[in-house]
Structures are given as structure tokens and as C-alpha cells.
Design a protein around this nucleic acid. Structure first.
Lengths: 332, 332
DNA sequence: ATGAAAGCGCTAACAC
DNA sequence: GTGTTAGCGCTTTCAT
């Protein structure tokens, strides 16, 4: 039988009330310093651990947040460009710092909505973070949660309506990367789309075109990989050289195959600009510049809003915000 | 206020006992079929959901298992060859099927043991799965859990002592892959070590050498990549060609850069045998054979044992088992 | 400043 | 076959 709050009270000649207050740091002008110390000592001595189920029962709170991913955590290669693991990891870390537990839920998108909702609800958590869910699924999911008054936020994907979400501004970020090369004096810039998921390719193309046009340059045709994987990326890189023989710089939509593209292009004096996860970008030799996914900011913003929401008496106005990537220039 | 078991009892003119029994499917010869149906209907009609905190309080169980990873979930590139995400994902899926919730915990290995234990204990779960933890940390961690009578298993890493673990037999699996090429009539086989973590390189080399010697062949020197990443793998592949000009087959210790190695070797008529995650292996063109990580078997075995352990009155004898990789031969 | 006591929702032993 | 009841460990109001 585990030590309980009553045991500690008896052992120290105090009451469960006092112990509870000490435990929760609410002993401002309540518990006498001497008693307080005695209680603290007993807690340490007997290795007391508070029973979270009992606390949850009383407080009507689980002190746990559900981190929900679409499908399975290991079948997410296509989302590499979205910093999937980084978002999950950072959100979990931030929640932990705030004293919350993390319930991991892999939600099968093939499930009908009612069944999906049932699974969400069964998790019994105080709120949900939907990481990189397809926009299609989000509206109904978030709506269902709102209906049940369960705070929920989309992380990584922007969604229409009165929902809360935090996402990466792919368009603006890609534009910034492009501007960086333009500022370096390059003019013949080609966008190389090697992202197997193509989820944000359109946004990136808009960013690219805006940057080019702002300098009075006509955008060049985008070259997209046909096959997936390293070979597809290589072929696309070579195709880019054929399509635009005098190319001066190449903008990658996805760092996934940056090192491979670099190798395929070696010998050519052109500048590479990456986009996405830092890991693969760092493998490049010589180093390249890249637009780094703001996973930290995105996850933190989502978590902070969610926790405020949970604590608030009324649902706060929805959080809807896009973050820019940061330019990483190892040479600088 | 959420509907409770008492509400359902009152609404159906029965007792909380009856509702509880129906809820838990223990109404064999207990609840009258008519009442049973009425209860079921009311549950559906009023959208009753059982309060897991209350259940947990009564049953002294959390119905939740902690999935614990070393460091952060997104800083695990080195563990690609260990099928890290696959193990996490499959364990989570299996637990979910068994009605358990998943508490995700990223344990910082830099933490001193007492603090690490405190964090583990705070999770309040019924048991732990330590996924791909470094062997160094495992003994003390598992021991601490045993001391506190919390069931815990190492998944992916074998550990000395009386602990439970399930792992991949890298040595035997690599031997099997090697035998496959030998059976195909190849003789000049070289092992190419492109695994940045080198965690299981030694075991693989033993498997390779055993297979070679069993055929009366002298093992050839292993070629290891110097730099990390795609470029390192490429360089290593070319080095292999120089070291053993008449090489007939190359055994990769890690599928991570299989496609890249294949490209670097294109033009040479030699056979490639991969090892590790299926994802990168499938990107190869033409397709290669590879030894596929038994993440499914490993995770399932661990979960099943853990759940039995939790339900058992006495701790069962430790589970210690290695699984072989399966040969995937797309051409067949 | 302090403790007694009333639940929170559920399970299971017990009496009918 | 059925309902009553006593907790499980904690928080918090209320009276002191």
C-alpha cells in the first residue's frame, strides 16, 4: 500500500488539509513554517507520491494533454518537410516542463468521424494537439472537440473557420530564402521540388514568384522530381540543369535530399538554398544555407495557448498564427 | 456536469452495481438481459463516458503504459538502423488495441538517476517500455523500476542481468543476409558500414564473418564511412570498389543511404543487400533485397509480456528474446 | 492558523 | 439476480 496524504498527516501530527496545502504550494499564510518543514521531511522520508487519479477525480482534470498524429508515427516520411517529429518532440517537451503528461494517440484517418471522436474522448485528457493533420480532417475534428468543450489546436496546418491553429508560413519563408539569393546577386534562380508530399509546393512557388517579380525578374519554370527518393531528386537536379543551362542558384523545397542533390550538381558553380529540417541540411558538404523550420516557436505557441485555454473560465479567442522560417547561413 | 454511473442507474431504475457490471462485461449471471439492454440504451442516449480517474482510483491502476525514449524523439537519426519510430509506433498501436493509453516520456539521459526515477514515477503508469535505450543506462533504470515494483521492459536493446528485454538479433540477421548472397553463388562479399551510430556494427561483422567462414571463405576487410551522411556513404562505396576491385556483392549495415550507395555504384554489376528500415530500401531502383527489421514482432512481444506482467499476481520470469530480421526479396 | 468532513465517480464485498 | 454501502486518495469549504 502506497503512502497517502493521510499517512503523512498522521505521521507529522497534522491534518490532510495541511499536507495538501504544502503539496500544492498554497501554504502562504496557512501552514506554520515548522509544520511545513515537518511535512516536507516526512514526504521525503517516506517517499510519498501523490495519487494523480485521486487528484484528477477531485479536480476534474487529467493534467495530461493528448498529442494526436494522423495515421502512424512511423509512416510519416512524406511529412519530413513539415518537421513532424520536431513538432511532436518539442510540444511534448514543453508540456512536460509545464507539469503536464503526454498521451500519444495515433488516429487512423480511415476511421469514420464518430468512431474517431470516440477514441479521442476515451483518451481522457484536458486538451488536444493535432500535429500535421491533413486540412480535410481538421475542420470536423476540431468542431467535434469544440462541441464537447475539449480545447484543441491544430499544429502545423492552418485550417479555415473559428478554430485555433499555429502553422509555418511556407510562402513567406520561401520568399525570404529566394530574396537571400537575389541579394547575393544571383538572377537565374530555379525552384527544385523534391518534396514527395507536395503539400506546400504551391505556397512555396508563390513565394518564389513574388520574390522574383519584386526584382523585375520573370520566374523560371519549377522542376519537380518524378520518382520519389534519392534517385528522383538526382534526376530532377539534372533536369534543372538542362531546362535552365545558365542557372545560378537552386531553391530546394525540401532538405530531405539536399546532400544528394548537391552531389548530383557538384562541378557546377551554383548556389544551393535548402528548406526544412536542419538534420539533412547539416549533412551537406560544403555547407549550404537553408530556411530552418520554426518547430520550436510553433510548438511552444500552440502549447502555451492550449494551457491558457484550459485554465481560462471562458474559451479565449482562437489563436491563428503563421511563423517564418529562420535563415541559417553556416558560412556567415 | 458529466453523466455518471449513478445517473444511468437512476434513469434506468437499476443500481450503480448493475451499470458497472454491464460496463465491464461482467454481467454473466448477474444482470437481467432486459435491464442490461435498458442500461446500454441509456448509456448510448445520454452519451455516458466512464471516468477513468475514478476507475483508476478504485482499481489502483492507471490503464496506461509509459513509452520512454532516450533524449528527444526527434534527435534519433543515429538510431534509424534500429527502427526507432517503428518500435514506438507499433508498441503504441498494440497497447491501444489492448485498451491501454500511452504516456510518452522523453527522458534526458544527462539527468542523474534519482531525478530520472522521479520523473518516471511521476508519470503514473502501470508499466514502462524503454525503447532503444543505451545499454549503459538500462541496468540501473530497470533495477530502480523493479525496486518500486513497476513492470518495465527494454525494447530494442539487450541488457545483462535479470531484466526483461526484447531485441533484434543483428548478428544472426546479418549472417542470414550474407548467406543469401552466398547461396546466389557470390563469393567476393564486402560489408559496407554506413551506420553513423555504429551501435550494432560489431555484431553484424561477426555475423558476416561466420557466414563467410562457414563456406570456407576468408572474410574481406569491412569498409566504413568516414564522413556522415550521403556523401560519407558514397565515398565509402567507392572506397569499397578500390579495396576489393573484384567485389561481387556489398552488404549494407544500414538502409539509411541505400539508394545513394546504389547510385554511386551504378555501372558496376554487383549485388546489394540492405539491412534496416524498409522505407529507404524501397526507394532503390532497381529494387534490392534487404533484411527487414522485425519491429512488429519485437514491439508486440514486449507489450504482451508487459501486460501479462501487470495482470499477474507475481512477477513472471524475465522475458529475454532476440528476433531475426526477415529477408525481403522484391524480385522474388 | 487549523482540522473535520463532504464529496469526486467508480468497484466490489456483502446482505438480501 | 439485485441494491446498499464502504471505501480508493485527494481538494476544499466551513467552522473553529
Amino acid at each position: 500500500m502506497r503512502t497517502t496524504i493521510n499517512d503523512i498527516a498522521r505521521l507529522t501530527g497534522t491534518s490532510p488539509t495541511a499536507v495538501s496545502f504544502v503539496l500544492n504550494g498554497k501554504d502562504h499564510k496557512r501552514v506554520h513554517p515548522a509544520k511545513r518543514q515537518a511535512i516536507l521531511d516526512a514526504i521525503e522520508k517516506y517517499g510519498y507520491r501523490r495519487n494523480m487519479a485521486a487528484k484528477g477525480l477531485t479536480m476534474r482534470r487529467a493534467f495530461r494533454i493528448g498529442i494526436c498524429v494522423a495515421g502512424r508515427l512511423d509512416q510519416t516520411r512524406v511529412l519530413a518537410a513539415a518537421g513532424h517529429y520536431g513538432l511532436v518532440s518539442q510540444a511534448a517537451a514543453r508540456l512536460h516542463e509545464s507539469g503536464y503528461g503526454i498521451a500519444l494517440l495515433q488516429l487512423d484517418l480511415a476511421l469514420p468521424l464518430p468512431e474517431a471522436c470516440r477514441r479521442l474522448v476515451r483518451e481522457d485528457v484536458d486538451g488536444f494537439l493535432f500535429i500535421n493533420f491533413p486540412v480535410m480532417a481538421l475542420d470536423r475534428l476540431l468542431f467535434s472537440m469544440a462541441e464537447r468543450r475539449i480545447p484543441a489546436i491544430s499544429v502545423g496546418a492552418a485550417v479555415e473557420g473559428a478554430h485555433s491553429w499555429v502553422a509555418i508560413d511556407h510562402e513567406r519563408s520561401f520568399e525570404l530564402g529566394c530574396i537571400h539569393l537575389l541579394d547575393a546577386g544571383l538572377r537565374r534562380l530555379v525552384m527544385l521540388d523534391t518534396d514527395a508530399s507536395r503539400v506546400s509546393s504551391e505556397a512555396k512557388r508563390r513565394g518564389y514568384e513574388r520574390a522574383m517579380r519584386a526584382r523585375g525578374l520573370e520566374p523560371l519554370p519549377t522542376v519537380a522530381s518524378v520518382a520519389s527518393g534519392a534517385r528522383g531528386a538526382c534526376d530532377a537536379a539534372r533536369a534543372a540543369l538542362e531546362t535552365v543551362p545558365d542557372v545560378e542558384g537552386i531553391l530546394l523545397t525540401d532538405n530531405g535530399h539536399a546532400a544528394v542533390v548537391q552531389m548530383a550538381l557538384s562541378g557546377r558553380a551554383l548556389r544551393l538554398m535548402g528548406f526544412g529540417d536542419d538534420g539533412p541540411a547539416r549533412e551537406c558538404d560544403p555547407p549550404i544555407s537553408w530556411m530552418s523550420l520554426p518547430v520550436h516557436s510553433v510548438a511552444d505557441a500552440a502549447v502555451d495557448h492550449l494551457l491558457r485555454w484550459i485554465d481560462a473560465p471562458e474559451p479565449p479567442p482562437p489563436l491563428q498564427r503563421r511563423f517564418d522560417c529562420a535563415l541559417i547561413a553556416p558560412g556567415a
